[in-house]
Write a protein that binds this DNA or RNA. Structure first.
Length: 261
DNA sequence: ATGGCAGGTACGACCTGA
């Protein structure tokens, strides 16, 4: 039976919970990774999600960041080997959580934004990505059935950018960031979205300002990377723009991958 | 060249995001 896994930067789970619950009703994915929950763990909506048929593991902090992995209760899965953060990169910012669900190892990542090339935040982003590559290399060897889902804050190629000339060298598009993304692929991970023909102008994020969505001035920065051993099972991958059209949307759209088995 | 929109914190701006 097909299995669906999604990733969505919700930009505040408190604000977006009704939209998430609505989306899960029409898109009953087995697993969804969330970023930018912006909730301390005490406020995580465990009961509301349970009522909607989902369980969750999560790692939050006040105001910023925060990640979670949700899975359908009717799968019968228990989350195993839950890991918060990267043991190779001690970090107060809650940007990474991993769990084994059924036969799948799932990592949910909220990669730092980087703010501006040559800023401290940018250097932190590159170090963070270097450490992720290093950690996933070992992780893949131990648990090859890996999916790394999240907001990478990297547009891997110019075709992932609405205006490549304007964005050239800027944060999210700079060569050092793209090199790190390619280093992830070189571990034996595949960008599920690019395993298929896709429409030109496919993006997962649009600026709230200047009618960014209406003009499709976007970037594709949310990705689902699947390991070599899983790649033959990938049936489809798409971005769902529907939630971006709602009132008070997240600036990101969910990305969904469908796997056999 | 700049700011524009949104969320959080906390009630007045400021930080961060992408």
């Amino acid at each position: 039976m097909p299995m669906r896994l999604a990733t969505w930067n919700v930009n505040s789970l408190k604000v977006r919970l009704p939209q998430l619950l609505g989306w899960l009703q029409t898109n009953p994915v087995q697993v969804i990774c969330l970023q930018e929950t912006k909730l301390v763990d005490e406020r995580f909506p465990v009961a509301e999600l349970a009522a909607a048929g989902y369980r969750a593991v999560f790692a939050g902090q006040p105001t910023y960041n925060g990640v979670a992995i949700l899975w359908r209760t009717d799968t019968g899965w228990e989350a195993r080997d839950v890991t918060v953060g990267n043991p190779l990169f001690p970090d107060e910012q809650q940007r990474l959580i991993s769990a084994t669900l059924g036969e799948l190892r799932v990592t949910c990542a909220y990669v730092p934004n980087g703010q501006a090339v040559d800023s401290d935040k940018y250097r932190y982003k590159l170090r963070w990505l270097d450490a992720l590559v290093q950690w996933l290399r070992d992780g893949l060897a131990a648990q090859p059935r890996l999916v790394v889902a999240g907001d990478y804050n990297v547009a891997p190629e110019d075709r992932d950018v609405h205006d490549p000339a304007a964005w050239a060298g800027q944060v999210l598009c700079s060569d050092p960031e793209r090199e790190r993304f390619r280093a992830l692929l070189a571990l034996g991970l595949h960008d599920a979205f690019r395993m298929f023909d896709q429409p030109a102008g496919s993006y997962s994020w649009w600026d709230y300002r200047q009618l960014g969505y209406q003009k499709n001035k976007g970037l594709r920065i949310d990705h689902l990377l699947v390991a070599d051993v899983l790649a033959p099972a990938v049936r489809a991958c798409r971005i769902d723009r529907a939630p971006r059209k709602l009132e008070k949307p997240s600036d990101h759209a969910p990305v969904i991958v469908e796997l056999d088995g």
